[in-house]
């Protein structure tokens, strides 16, 4: 209890001192550096985007004039990777559609640039079917990253074997498991576009994936890359309801609803655990970042996980 009180006071002091940052990671890093060194913490950085919608150049005109741009995003990614080689770069779908680049080049440039930026994985959004499932298939060879999608059954389609249900990456011994969830296509995508792609229930698929990633693959971190949407006013499955109704996920990064958040949500899941849920708007305006500080072995009894948002 003493420690919690102390940290809160320290952070409050920084706010009074004029720190208007979303997260004061410099302060936290300073505070924890001694502990991290002593305890040998390994830092894993997750960078994420969603709904970039073919926005290659910075936005021109309107409310977001001058924001975004792939060549700048690439610089940001490069800088973060230089600081921490244990960085994963993930996208949560709707890479396609939104500027003439998609209509003229069919998504080729979007995927090639993601490859150049060193994306590790992307899930599939409804707009990624906008040139039909064949249009998506045509761009797969331009991707050196994996399309990770767990609840679309492509077995009767041309995309069969082109995606992974989950992906594991090991960084400095830390095993990071990722799986992907796509939104129900009916009503969003014309049937002739997705053809015989079958949608499977995200809740059932999630428990399967968590079981595989936690118990068979021994992952230390489990990340859900979602294109379900952040939150709905009805019982439609969303990132928030998924977080509440499942267990075993550490982080849900989402898309589809183009939701701009001041900070990620911390949601209590079905097992009483905390899940971080984030989304970073759209069009490459923002890049999200979650740093996991990993402790070798288990935490001592009574020790707390800190969520700094």
């Amino acid at each position: 209890m003493e420690r919690r009180k102390f940290i809160r006071n320290t952070t409050t002091a920084s706010l009074i001192a004029g720190t208007a940052l979303w997260s004061n990671s410099a302060l936290a890093a300073g505070f924890f550096s001694e502990r991290e060194e002593k305890k040998g913490l390994t830092k894993i950085t997750i960078l994420h985007t969603n709904d970039t919608h073919s926005h290659i150049e910075p936005i021109s005109g309107g409310r977001d004039d001058g924001k975004g741009g792939v060549a700048r995003r690439a610089a940001l990614i490069k800088k973060v990777r230089a600081e921490n080689p244990n960085t994963l770069l993930l996208d949560c779908g709707d890479i396609f559609q939104g500027t003439p680049y998609f209509n003229f080049y069919g998504g080729e440039l979007e995927i090639k640039l993601m490859t150049m930026m060193g994306y590790d994985a992307a899930t599939i959004g409804n707009h990624d079917f906008d040139n039909g499932i064949d249009g998506l298939y045509a761009q797969v060879p331009n991707a050196s990253f994996d399309f990770v999608i767990s609840n679309y059954d492509f077995s009767n389609t041309i995309m069969d074997g082109q995606t992974k249900p989950y992906k594991i990456m090991v960084k400095d011994g830390v095993r990071i498991g990722m799986f992907g969830l796509g939104i129900k296509m009916e009503g969003l995508v014309a049937p002739e576009m997705f053809k015989e792609t079958k949608y499977r229930d995200p809740l059932t698929v999630t428990q399967d994936m968590v079981n595989v990633l936690r118990n068979q693959e021994n992952c230390d971190i489990v990340i859900c890359m979602s294109h379900l949407g952040y939150k709905y006013g009805n019982d439609k499955i969303s990132d928030i309801s998924l977080a509440q109704k499942t267990s075993g996920i550490d982080l849900i990064i989402g898309g589809h609803t183009h939701t701009f958040l001041d900070q990620p949500d911390l949601v209590t899941n079905a097992a009483g655990e905390t899940v971080m849920v984030n989304q970073v708007g759209c069009y490459g305006i923002n890049v999200g970042r979650i740093d996991f500080y990993m402790h070798k072995g288990k935490l001592a009894s009574g020790e707390n996980v800190v969520y700094e948002v």
Binding site: S25, A71, R72, M116, I290, E303, E308
Partner: peptide, 26 residues
């Protein structure tokens, strides 16, 4: 050799003109 998350820190960066472009990408 399992690891446990001790701390999660979240932030986001606005992509705007304050970030210089990567020339090879442009």
């Amino acid at each position: 050799e399992s690891y446990t998350a001790e701390k999660l820190v979240a932030s986001q960066t606005r992509v705007d003109s304050t970030i210089a472009e990567v020339e090879s990408i442009s």
